[in-house]
């Protein structure tokens, strides 16, 4: 894929998102909103996205769509689990924590996929991303129970990585 088509894909995806957001914000599909929204979304996506490389690795295939749904499902499950976990830890009188910072390496290359990975980790039970150096994520855990921290880190990452690998190249 050459640079020109990549830019086109990037701009058109952002254009669609902005256009949808404009219609939702105005809560109307009258002609005046459609026209003004198209103009504004076009202007912003052309002006602001000259250096953006956020969506160009997104795959637009049925399989990727299916995996997006699976990813969302896993994510919501983990988010709810995380909250009950934190509520239990906070409310129990003995405060059962055993924190530590562990490392985990990711194989994802797309920046957007890595952002989603980091955000997912931050919102899943007992973990949050502190730093990233090259391909290594440093994850702060409330409770490191495994004997082998290395293994534990990979486990946390693997849950989301297998979906993101398919969705982003």
């Amino acid at each position: 894929m050459n640079l020109k088509t990549m830019k086109l894909k990037e701009i058109s995806i952002i254009f669609i998102i902005l256009f949808a957001a404009w219609l939702i914000l105005n809560q109307s599909t009258a002609t005046e909103y459609l026209v003004s929204g198209a103009l504004i979304a076009l202007a912003i996506s052309m002006l602001m996205c000259r250096h953006c490389t956020v969506f160009d690795e997104l795959r637009l295939s049925p399989k990727a769509f299916l995996f997006t749904l699976l990813f969302l499902f896993t994510f919501i499950k983990e988010l709810i689990k995380a909250n009950f976990d934190i509520a239990w830890r906070v409310l129990s009188p003995s405060l059962p924590i055993k924190p530590g910072i562990i490392r985990a390496t990711t194989t994802l290359q797309s920046k957007m996929a890595r952002l989603i990975l980091a955000n997912s980790i931050t919102l899943t039970p007992g973990t949050f991303t502190i730093d990233i150096i090259d391909d290594t994520l440093y994850i702060h855990c409330v409770y490191v129970d495994s004997e082998d921290p290395e293994q534990y880190g990979q486990q946390i990452i693997r849950k989301f990585e297998k979906y993101l690998e398919v969705i982003y190249g």
Partner: peptide, 30 residues
């Protein structure tokens, strides 16, 4: 999540200590 990541990174960088219960710190080693 992004704002808390930036906050945590900043806190680690300016050297706010981890609690005494912390038993492993790979970032420091690296």
């Amino acid at each position: 999540p992004v704002s808390s990541h930036v906050l945590g990174r900043a806190a680690y960088f300016i050297g706010i200590p981890l609690s005494a219960k912390t038993h492993i710190d790979n970032l420091k080693q690296d």
